[in-house]
Computed example of a mutant assay.
Amino acid sequence: MTIKTRLAGGVASAALALGAAAPAMAEGELNLLTWEGYADPSFIAPFEEATGCTVSATYVGSNDDFAPRLAAGGGVFDLVSPSSDSTAPLITAGFVDPIDTSRLDRWDELYERFRTSEGINSDGQVYGVPYAWGAIAFMYKPDAFETPPRSLDALMDPALEGKVALWDDKSAIYVAARMNGDMDIYNLSDEQIAAAQETLGEMRSNVRKYWSSAGELVDLFASGEVVLSNTWAGYQSALLAEQGIEVVEFIPEENAEGWMDSWMVVSGTPNEDCAYQFLNMAISEAGQCGVASVNGYSVANPVAARECMTPEQFEALHQDDPAYLDSLLLWENLGPRLGAYTNAWNAVKSQ
């Protein structure tokens, strides 16, 4: 039984609660620039009915997509949901506005580590509302391996020529750096970045595809083209399970990155009232069990999660396990080094 199935009851209850406690009708249109699953009808439709705010979504495949889309201007988007290593350029460029946390009924319930993250705090102001978190784990098809992979070294196995996939994202530099023994992955020197780029180049013959969406990776595994890849832990594996395809997730010996996504309000949005209604929904039971159900991710509000999950589900998603979160290499803002990482990754893809 998948997380999506197990949480269905919780999402339904949360949706009913949203309708029962509906705020005053705001009426407006919200355009989201976000990840797959973050605007799923299972929790968006009740929100629209309760508030009068209609929601449409454009999906990204990488954190590198947010800044260019906002830089294009035109007032297209109202809310965005980047990860914590990619928020600084949006804040610095003035693409997003500070959050008025007094307008968020359940702000204080969010994990303190996320509320105080440097990824959403700048110059004494808050710029993001933590939503979901998880690991960038790896997954494999067990019938393709006599011995289950445990190390990132498996990515270089000659027997896997053309059978590996990697996420089309600068985080591939983080993976290669760990393969090289450079564990301070968010503070790499120019030499270490160059070494990571070289490692990725050496791996190129094994890589069938740099995937850019959840569905693309699912299709690669379903067709048998790929047997090993990094993955948004809990999501693509659940989608494959629904097709009866067995995959196994694992945290490599070289550890895994952790991520946290936050909702940010685009500067100058004409739909601010709807935006704040959405933010309140996102960190309530409706939004928290909504994303947990659809994506299989852990969530930022453990109080809401405890209300709409069974104890078993709460534990499975590590909501009561700060040691698990602490064990991950949680993404950090790269600051002025962002360009070096991004340029190295683009150079790898152009080979």
Score class of each variant (00 low, 15 high):
Gly201His: 12
Tyr174Asn: 11
Ser171Tyr: 08
Val175Thr: 14
Gly181Ala: 04
Asp168Trp: 14
Leu166Glu: 12
Asp184Ser: 06
Leu160Asp: 03
Gly201Trp: 08
Gly181Trp: 03
Asn187Ala: 10
Ser189Lys: 05
Glu198Ile: 05
Leu166Ile: 14
Thr199Pro: 08
Lys163Pro: 11
Trp167Pro: 00
Asp184Lys: 03
Gly162Leu: 05
Ser189Thr: 15
Ser213Val: 09
Leu166Gly: 09
Leu188Arg: 02
Tyr186Thr: 14
Glu198Phe: 03
Ala195Glu: 11
Arg204Asn: 09
Val175Arg: 02
Asp182Ala: 02
Ser205Tyr: 05
Arg208Tyr: 12
Ser213Phe: 13
Val218Ser: 01
Met203Cys: 11
Trp211Pro: 00
Met203Phe: 12
Met179Leu: 11
Ala194His: 08
Asp168Arg: 15
Met183Ala: 07
Ile185Asn: 10
Gly181Arg: 04
Ser205Pro: 01
Glu198Tyr: 10
Gln192Ser: 11
Ala159His: 10
Glu216Ser: 06
Leu220Pro: 06
Gln197Ala: 11
Glu198His: 13
Asn206Arg: 07
Trp167Phe: 14
Asn187Pro: 03
Leu166Lys: 06
Gly215Phe: 01
Gly162Ser: 05
Lys209Asn: 12
Trp211Met: 00
Gly215Ser: 08
Ile193Gly: 04
Ala195Val: 02
Val218Ala: 07
Ser189Met: 06
Asp190Asn: 12
Asp219Glu: 13
Tyr186Ile: 06
Asp219Gln: 15
Trp211Tyr: 15
Glu216Asn: 07
Arg178Lys: 14
Gly162Phe: 02
Leu166Ser: 10
Lys209Trp: 01
Glu191Gly: 13
Ala194Met: 10
Ala195Lys: 12
Leu217Thr: 07
Glu191Leu: 15
Ala194Asp: 15
Lys170Asn: 03
Asp190Arg: 13
Trp167Glu: 09
Phe221Arg: 03
Trp167Leu: 15
Gly162Thr: 10
Gln197Trp: 02
Leu166Phe: 14
Arg208Phe: 07
Asp184Tyr: 03
Phe221Asn: 09
Asp190Leu: 08
Ala165Glu: 04
Glu198Ala: 13
Gln197Pro: 00
Leu220Gly: 05
Ala196Leu: 09
Arg178Pro: 00
Arg178Phe: 02
Val164Asp: 00
Val164Lys: 08
Ala222Ser: 13
Leu200His: 10
Ser189Tyr: 14
Lys170Gly: 08
Ala194Tyr: 07
Tyr186Cys: 02
Asn180Tyr: 03
Leu188Gly: 02
Ala172Asn: 15
Leu200Met: 14
Arg204Pro: 09
Val164Gly: 06
Leu160Gly: 05
Ala177Thr: 09
Ala194Ile: 00
Leu217Asp: 08
Ser205His: 01
Tyr210Pro: 00
Leu217Lys: 01
Ala176Asn: 09
Gly215Thr: 01
Ala222Gln: 09
Ala172Phe: 15
Leu160Trp: 07
Asp169Gln: 03
Ser189Pro: 14
Gly215Glu: 13
